[in-house]
Simulated scan of single mutants.
Amino acid sequence: MLKVVNRLKPATKSLVFVACLAAAGACTPIYKNHGYVPPAEELAEIKVGVDTRDSVEEAIGAPGASGVVRDSGYYYVRSRVRHYGPKRPEVVARELVAISFDQRGVVRNIERFGLEDGIVVPLERRVTDSNVQDKGFLRQLLGNIGNFNPANIPGAN
């Protein structure tokens, strides 16, 4: 085996070395962090029953999300996702801080949830689905031939 390796040209040796490095690098997990959750020290500065929406934003920053209803809370979410080779990305940590307000806009409660508590916090992205199906460009372009109705033309009456 050693004789075979010694016979290889330097360019081939370099190519084999690069291929081995690429294979080893593909097995290394890559972590990506998304979102923001204020540190515990900053959350400790918020006084329940005293601070308002404006003072919360000033103290810890604008939330990543807020409720749909006007008097609902602020939500700060942070996720850590592990990408490992060709496998599907996996959420390894997720933390959510929920700050709720009363009708006057005063802080009512501060809660912290996470995966380690056994509470799964599912995040959803609602994206409008397109009508484009698994058809090629020409099939989509020519697909409406024969479906033409002159009565649908505006001003044709």
Results as ranks from 00 to 15, higher is better:
residue 118 G to Y: 04
residue 118 G to A: 05
residue 121 V to C: 06
residue 123 L to V: 11
residue 70 R to I: 11
residue 102 D to A: 01
residue 83 H to A: 05
residue 60 I to R: 00
residue 80 R to Q: 10
residue 108 R to S: 13
residue 89 P to G: 04
residue 121 V to W: 04
residue 75 Y to C: 13
residue 119 I to N: 15
residue 115 L to P: 04
residue 90 E to Q: 14
residue 85 G to Y: 12
residue 117 D to C: 01
residue 99 I to T: 11
residue 124 E to R: 03
residue 82 R to L: 04
residue 89 P to R: 02
residue 65 A to D: 04
residue 117 D to W: 02
residue 85 G to H: 07
residue 119 I to G: 13
residue 101 F to I: 09
residue 127 V to H: 01
residue 113 F to K: 13
residue 81 V to G: 11
residue 64 G to N: 02
residue 85 G to Q: 10
residue 123 L to S: 09
residue 93 A to C: 08
residue 115 L to Q: 09
residue 90 E to G: 05
residue 98 A to S: 07
residue 111 E to W: 11
residue 109 N to K: 15
residue 115 L to F: 08
residue 125 R to E: 15
residue 96 L to S: 06
residue 86 P to G: 13
residue 80 R to F: 03
residue 88 R to A: 15
residue 101 F to Q: 14
residue 85 G to A: 13
residue 82 R to S: 01
residue 82 R to W: 05
residue 73 G to K: 07
residue 88 R to L: 15
residue 104 R to I: 05
residue 67 G to Q: 08
residue 99 I to D: 12
residue 64 G to L: 02
residue 93 A to R: 10
residue 121 V to Y: 04
residue 70 R to K: 11
residue 90 E to V: 10
residue 110 I to H: 03
residue 76 Y to L: 04
residue 73 G to V: 09
residue 73 G to D: 12
residue 113 F to S: 14
residue 116 E to I: 12
residue 82 R to E: 13
residue 103 Q to V: 07
residue 117 D to T: 02
residue 95 E to D: 09
residue 122 P to K: 02
residue 61 G to H: 00
residue 107 V to D: 11
residue 117 D to I: 03
residue 116 E to R: 08
residue 63 P to K: 00
residue 69 V to E: 01
residue 77 V to N: 14
residue 90 E to Y: 05
residue 82 R to Q: 07
residue 120 V to T: 09
residue 68 V to C: 08
residue 123 L to D: 08
residue 107 V to A: 07
residue 107 V to K: 06
residue 69 V to I: 00
residue 61 G to F: 01
residue 84 Y to G: 09
residue 96 L to A: 06
residue 103 Q to C: 02
residue 64 G to A: 02
residue 93 A to P: 05
residue 119 I to F: 14
residue 84 Y to W: 15
residue 62 A to N: 09
residue 100 S to V: 12
residue 76 Y to E: 09
residue 74 Y to H: 09
residue 112 R to W: 11
residue 110 I to R: 06
residue 64 G to W: 01
residue 114 G to W: 12
residue 62 A to D: 10
residue 124 E to P: 01
residue 88 R to F: 15
residue 59 A to K: 06
residue 86 P to D: 14
residue 84 Y to F: 12
residue 78 R to K: 12
residue 114 G to V: 13
residue 109 N to R: 14
residue 81 V to P: 12
residue 89 P to F: 01
residue 117 D to K: 03
residue 83 H to P: 01
residue 119 I to Y: 13
residue 63 P to L: 01
residue 57 E to K: 00
residue 118 G to K: 03
residue 111 E to V: 10
residue 80 R to K: 09
residue 81 V to L: 13
residue 110 I to G: 08
residue 78 R to L: 08
residue 75 Y to G: 14
residue 86 P to A: 10
residue 107 V to W: 08
residue 68 V to R: 07
residue 97 V to E: 12
